[in-house]
Amino acid sequence: MTGKSTLAALCLLAGTTHATDPAALQARNLAANCTPCHSADAPEPNAIPRIAGLPADRILQRLRAFRSGEAPATVMHQIVRGYGDEQLALIATLLASSP
């Protein structure tokens, strides 16, 4: 666990056993913003890193580092600023659970 918002997201998700839960659906829809570039079906090798299946806290840490400017980026720093902490946590959790 890396932060309160991850915990909060997990608590939200923990109440669900089906993808009809609003938080799970929100996570799925938000993560679908990422997949045009970071598709789980993308061919390897690939200049754009594959995210699906990485540990959630690692994904979240990276997203936050883009937002703070700590991690160098061409475009990710501009993109992550469009999402709040809770949303980034949902995205990280969902992508981590993707096959």
Partner: peptide, 27 residues
């Protein structure tokens, strides 16, 4: 507060542009 442009044209973004086309097709 979100979004923006490249600071300048680059070969790095050239590689991302090529990967973008492959990856969105896979998506």
């Amino acid at each position: 507060g979100a979004g923006g442009l490249s600071s300048a044209a680059s070969e790095e973004e050239g590689r991302y542009a090529t990967a973008w086309a492959q990856n969105i097709r896979a998506d």
